[in-house]
Amino acid sequence: MKPNYYVAHPWHGLELGPKAPDELDVFIELTPQDTVKYEIDKASGFIRVDRPQKYSNRSPTLYGFIPRTFSGEASGKHCSEVVGRPDILGDGDPIDICVLSVNPITHGNMILTVIPIGGLRMIDKGEADDKIVAVLKGDEVFGQMKDISEVPKALINKLHHYFLTYKLDPNSPSTGTVEITEVYDRVEAIKVIQFGIEDYIKKFVTV
């Protein structure tokens, strides 16, 4: 294989992997140990400090995104149809992913091979902002799980609570703009990923 002498952009330059969407290579921005919120800088591909985590919330899992996906028209339309509300849009970002691993991985800015097992249908300010849940391939504890129904309820509750509260300021009343309408299974997660791939191709590939 010809070597790549340049660092690939994590969103546009990384491949999904030959078994996508059943098995994916994903990019991790944030770990449970991080006390600040890191996020990819879309223009450069470098990791940027988005904001300090001012309060007690930290991500319960590894957190990042699926390369070459985009939450756009098809993603928003699918969310609208499922929840029965018109005019939900995609949030304009790559599809987010939470990765379960029993072994502590202490820094982000890395690629992992994962297996999707479900997700959280999150809507933020009227935009689809799905959080796919996956297991690290080969993980001794989580790696054998095939569906989110096998994950301990307490861990799903932690994810649920994190995403509903991680933007809140205790000194300001919540405006209720973020909601999670359901926790869905692996079959639905694959659909969400496929719509994200479709939106990416339409946005960045199709001329």
Rank of each mutant, 00 (worst) to 15 (best):
Y6F: 15
A134T: 02
P67G: 08
H160D: 15
I117S: 01
A128N: 10
K42V: 05
I111Y: 08
T61H: 05
H161P: 00
D87V: 04
Y184C: 05
P3A: 10
L14V: 09
F27L: 12
Y166W: 04
E150Y: 03
G84S: 02
D139R: 02
R58L: 07
D129I: 10
P32Y: 04
G108T: 08
V36K: 14
Y6M: 12
I40H: 06
E23H: 09
G126T: 04
E140D: 14
N157F: 07
V183W: 01
V135S: 02
W11Y: 00
P173G: 06
Y63Q: 11
R48M: 12
K191Y: 03
V102D: 08
S101G: 11
S80A: 14
P60W: 12
I105Y: 04
V192W: 02
V207L: 11
G196F: 01
A8W: 07
G108V: 07
V99A: 04
R51S: 03
V187C: 09
D41S: 09
P67K: 06
T206P: 01
P152W: 03
K203T: 00
P10D: 08
V135A: 02
L155V: 03
L164F: 02
K131M: 02
T61D: 06
D91I: 10
V205Q: 12
G64V: 14
N103E: 15
A154H: 12
N109H: 14
I115F: 04
Q144C: 14
R48Y: 07
K137I: 11
N103H: 12
P10K: 04
E182T: 06
S174R: 00
I132P: 01
D50N: 15
G64C: 11
D129Y: 04
